[in-house]
Amino acid sequence: MTSYLGGALGVMGGIYTAGGISGAHMNPAFSLAMCLIEQFPWWKFPIFVAVQIVGSFIAAGAVYVVYYDAIWHHSNGTLTVTGPQETASIFATYPADFVSIGNGFLDQVIGTGVLIIVVMGIMDPRNKPVPKGLEPVVVALLVLSIECSMGANCGCPLNPARDIGPRLFTYLAGWGPEVFSRGNGWWWVPLVAPLLGAAVGTYLYQLFVAFHYPEEKSEALAEQGSIVLVNTAISSADIGRSPKERDSGETEPAGYPPPQSPSSTVSPTVPITTLKES
């Protein structure tokens, strides 16, 4: 439970830190979902996945350095992947002894599908809005709930990069090739199943939720807290009109706005781009 809580809080911190720059794409499954709904360009997908894996690899290295003494003390001087003194599961996920490959694969498809469905509901401005600034907290609670309810089978990876990056680190750091052979070659399941789950979750949300929204005007989206910024090129005829006139059609008193100063260097033919709330 403690590790699940730490992971969920880590997701929250990552979103707060990088959400404004990259959209906080920490999971290839999420990146794939955004590509499928045309909110993210396909050409960026392999780049983001590569960076996500490298980031996970580096994070695993940081964990190893911080807990170096504890890892070697617990393992009694031998880095193992199985047995009571194994430490490989600190970094990557492995299925429980009673879980088959098929059951684990289905587990990850369903778990990641649920994750993507709810994340899309959180992101959808036509749905019940999350108070602005609290989206990372809600996503963290979502991750925590999935991990607590579905983590018993295989540790609930839900994220291909989060699994393969640390797995590669343990392979190189001394745990050896058994990190790929344990669990009847489990390693490929956290790579493939979450991506399939992301696709399934994306299309289920579109089919059962997004498809059923009526045509909404911008005023309705604004009432739900969604601000749409529109780039508008203003013609030379509009330069002499105030923003209020351009938006509402109302007329300002004569002499408004004041005439341009002769020293002004702005040409009336230069297109000006504004952001209009619609």
Rank of each mutant, 00 (worst) to 15 (best):
Q108P: 03
L158E: 05
P46I: 06
E245N: 06
G77Q: 11
G225T: 09
L168N: 01
A60I: 00
P136W: 03
A8T: 06
T2I: 15
A161G: 06
L36S: 12
I37P: 03
E38T: 08
I116P: 01
W187T: 02
N184D: 15
S75F: 04
I47G: 04
Q39N: 15
I234D: 06
T93K: 01
M12I: 10
G197S: 08
F30Q: 09
L141H: 03
V266G: 11
H212A: 01
E86C: 10
V139R: 02
F40V: 11
Y64H: 14
F57A: 02
E219Q: 12
V143P: 02
V189A: 05
C35N: 09
L9N: 00
T87W: 03
C148E: 10
F180P: 01
L5H: 07
N103D: 11
L9A: 03
E219G: 05
Y64P: 04
C156G: 09
G10M: 11
E245P: 01
S89L: 00
L134I: 00
V209N: 04
G113T: 03
Y203K: 05
L275M: 15
P243E: 10
Q85K: 14
F211S: 12
P41Q: 07
M26T: 05
D69G: 04
F91K: 00
V138S: 05
P258G: 13
A220L: 12
S89I: 00
G6Q: 14
T170W: 01
F180Q: 00
E147Y: 08
G20S: 09
F91V: 02
A92E: 05
V179E: 04
I164P: 03
P166L: 01
T274Y: 13
D163I: 05
S278H: 13
P136E: 05
E178I: 00
C156N: 14
T273F: 13
S263I: 08
V51W: 07
G19Q: 08
G121Q: 03
R167Y: 11
A233D: 15
C156E: 15
Y213N: 01
P41Y: 05
V66F: 14
F105V: 08
S145H: 04
P157V: 07
P131W: 02
G19W: 05
G111I: 07
P160V: 02
A24T: 10
K128F: 13
V65N: 10
Y16M: 09
L106T: 14
G83F: 07
H212V: 02
I227D: 12
K44C: 04
P214G: 02
I21T: 13
T265D: 14
S145L: 07
V99K: 01
Y171T: 07
F48H: 09
T265H: 11
G113K: 02
I37D: 08
P268E: 02
E38S: 13
L204Y: 05
A50F: 15
D163G: 01
T232I: 11
L221I: 07
G7C: 00
H74G: 09
D238F: 10
G183Y: 08
F40E: 09
F45K: 11
T93S: 10
P258N: 14
R162N: 07
Q108C: 04
G13Q: 07
D247H: 12
P194V: 06
T112Y: 04
I53Q: 14
L191C: 13
